[in-house]
Amino acid sequence: MTAIDNGPAASADPVVNSIFRRNMATFAENRLALGSAVVVLLFVLMAVFAPFIAPHDPNVTDLFRRLQPPAWQEGGDWAYLLGCDALGRDILSRIIYGARISIFVGAAVVLVATTIGIVAGLAAGFLRGWVDTVISRVVDILLGFPYLIFAIGLMAMMGPGLINIILALVYKEWVIPCRVVRGETLATRELEYVEAARALGASSRHIMMREILPNILSPVIVVSTIRMAHVIILEASLSFLGLGVQPPTASWGAMVADGRAFIMQSWWVSTFPGIAILLLVLGINVASQGLRDAFDPRFHE
């Protein structure tokens, strides 16, 4: 609306100012995203090279070191930097090994769920008709259940274990990429270049895989990385509830749970794995936001 526009008329100074400010903001944001990506990368390296990095065997118990405080506290020992848990196991080493579970579960769940989601979403969005009706109904029903309770129920049925955690989470996780893919496919299939491919005689498979999929992949990748943080929290929650990987395998959620009883006297047992979860989840979230900005042309000039 021009006639009743109340925006300020542009004058030279504020313009220059706002350009400067906006560029600074973009820059800072990118630096933050970059830093976060480095943090995530460090966690991944830590998980991969755990046996070489960890100062101790994560599962060796030593009752003499029961609840030993971190090195810088009274009674600490620099060989056990973050102290020991109730069974005298080195907390740092367990955190390093625990990263393997968190990252493996996170990556595996997101990978499997995204693959299923892409196939189901493409089929629903491109083929429409009854395929779409069936898939959309299933998605709606799954979305109706609270995530954690759904996973707890499944774990209770299947019993604990690494593979079962992944399965329990995938059961519902695929719904999210599926919805994204379906929406993007619905929008993309109407574009003229898709119609052009059909006019040239391309098969449905060619159109789905070669024309549509490459063009909708970026939002899917962005959503998947964001979801990875959620999945890591869910895995930690399940482990916290004792439904995750079974002891003595180190897992951050279970470590937090282990320390609960001593939280007043021996705060370090729960706190350090908690911080590890926080750092990794935060890192993934911020990095994926940077990723979204980079992928999403709406954020470009």
Partner: peptide, 28 residues
């Protein structure tokens, strides 16, 4: 064949000109 109205929407943004123009040759 068909030629479309919108010069922006009618070409797949992720294919090079060679791929776009070569597609019919490949398909048939």
């Amino acid at each position: 064949q068909i030629i479309f109205q919108d010069p922006y929407a009618s070409l797949n943004p992720r294919r090079t000109v060679a791929e776009i123009v070569g597609l019919p040759l490949k398909l048939h």
